[in-house]
Design a protein around this nucleic acid. Structure first.
Lengths: 321, 321
DNA sequence: ATGAAAGCGCTAACAC
DNA sequence: GTGTTAGCGCTTTCAT
């Protein structure tokens, strides 16, 4: 194993000088820096993470707790995990992955044993039992997805209220007078509530008839939901349920409803999903990469640790008119 | 911060005794053990991971490198990540997540800086550039998904050859004489090759006409693939492409082909996927939890570090007859 | 069955 | 601009 002492000896300097070259915490002559960097490369030196953490009280590890069991079908979860991993590496941090069902004790364990410097937590619910623990950790915490009540914790999310507004505005602008919302399986989560409120309030403001429905992503649930939804004869639907989206579209087709001729569709989903079907969908994408980057920067105190809601962007494609 | 010295003082013993109570590496009187355990609980002591790793050369962290960008659509990837995280915690290990596109240098970094004790790598390809690095790491390495060539690295996977055999045997037993395989987007990966070989060899052995097709998961690709596939008028198809499966089924329906009346379908997919559509599908599931558990045990040297292929299990449901 | 003490490899305060 | 050195909190010999 190559240690800092080996590098120092090879470069003809003191170990602390090597440390300072690596950290940039004091000025180093160009000559010394070159010698040290060369020795590092030649010897293939990688600082020992444990020693570093012990001496500096920093691990350069972020921990992400994600809902890895229940939301397995939700492709958005994996996208977030990937985005956070990528954002973390972009800031020289590694990522320790925790599953949601390990609960508060895992958060405490990771923080107390100094396995990670900060925590990012997805899918925090209204009265989540993890919140008190997170508040007591003494480490930076950022939530992805904003719990409806102020928790005192920093959070990042899409502005779902604005997203609901945007979808209805788009459809109203196109002349639709009757629209329906097909929402997610869990109507109680903050994102669902906010979207629904934006949707309903804007429909009212613009004198558009609106109905709200919710369903899971199993075939039967979707079918029943569409049965109900279509009785009101809307000319457009907004689908805020990515997992159900493919089945919804297939089912519309099966019923002989063409998109957008008979029914306009706006989806809240990843761009990849919006463009993967026969009809490219007008959609509001969740800005996963930006949210992840922002969350990581917050944990590193490079961005103010407060709740930030990113503005939605609606991309018009072929499914609305 | 609570340290081992605090616990030792509270319990009236030496720090080393606390350490030994925690590790179980030497016998402790019941009385001492009780006192120490009580102090640990009362003080909320969590051993510092960095100090531990520095002193013991063990981190109790496993690193998993997963294809988090390219295979984002592949629900199987996330399932593996979740399963490995769960299996790791079951063995008192934490999980450091790496993305495949960080490449060999990330593996070297994590191993050399002692961030993790061992590495699990998904999606290793035929002539993967990471293989030489993995061989030189001096740490346990387990691949999930077996590269076709012997690499000298331990690996776990489903026995895809046997899976291909099993699917054709099932259909042949039901009396089918013409079957088609709809394979994955990347026909060159070992799993695809092996499945195809099992499929083709068994078809020949049982005098069943067989054709092999491949396609991505975009709508147009699937449509074109089905156009081609259906010209041979098979009475059954085997879908080894989970991402495409929902679209394939929707498209069959659109063409007026009923499952299983007009066409039997066998899928290689998660059970959740097999049972989520209108017709429960006869399927071969990938035993993700077992594979993850086995991989974790191999990294911990609790299972022999060799290539292990798990036998497929076919579950008959309503889509074949 | 338990204690004392020597490091593990690094960072950061202190010295010059 | 650089060197010296005292820890960081733990594990593990070595003693008894």
């Amino acid at each position: 194993m190559v240690t800092i002492v080996d590098v120092a000896r090879a470069a003809g300097v003191a170990p602390s000088t090597v440390s300072y070259v690596l950290s940039g915490k004091r000025s180093i002559s160009a000559r010394t820096r070159r010698a040290v960097e060369q020795s590092i490369r030649q010897l293939g030196y990688h600082p020992n993470a444990g020693a570093r953490s012990l001496a500096s009280h920093r691990t350069n590890v972020l921990s992400l707790m994600a809902p890895l069991r229940e939301d397995l079908n939700n492709p958005g979860v994996m996208e977030f995990v990937a985005a956070v991993a990528t954002a973390a590496r972009g800031h020289d941090q590694d990522l320790l992955l925790l599953t949601k069902d390990e609960g508060a004790s895992a958060l405490r364990r990771v923080a107390s044993s100094a396995l990670a410097d900060a925590l990012i937590v997805m899918d925090v619910e209204l009265a989540d039992p993890r919140i008190p623990t997170l508040l007591s950790l003494g480490r930076p915490v950022v939530l992805i997805g904003e719990p409806a009540e102020a928790t005192g914790l920093a959070a990042v999310d899409l502005d779902y209220t604005a997203a609901g507004v945007r979808c209805v505005d788009h459809l109203a602008d196109l002349g639709h007078r009757a629209v329906a919302l097909l929402g997610p399986h869990r109507p109680d989560i903050p994102a669902a509530r906010r979207f629904r409120h934006g949707f309903a309030a804007t429909a009212q403001a613009r004198c558009v008839e609106a109905t709200v429905h919710q369903c899971g992503h199993e075939y039967e649930a979707i079918r029943a939901c569409l049965d109900e939804l279509l009785t009101t004869e809307p000319t457009a639907i907004v689908v805020h349920n990515e997992a159900a989206l493919p089945t919804v579209l297939a089912e519309l087709q099966r019923r002989g409803l063409r998109v957008p001729e008979d029914l306009s569709v706006v989806a809240v989903c990843r761009d990849a999903m919006a463009t993967s079907g026969p009809v490219p969908l007008t959609s509001v994408a969740i800005p996963v990469a930006e949210l992840a980057e922002l969350a990581v920067r917050m944990t590193l105190r490079e961005a103010p640790a407060e709740t930030q809601l990113l503005a939605p962007r609606l991309t018009q494609r072929a499914s609305t008119r």
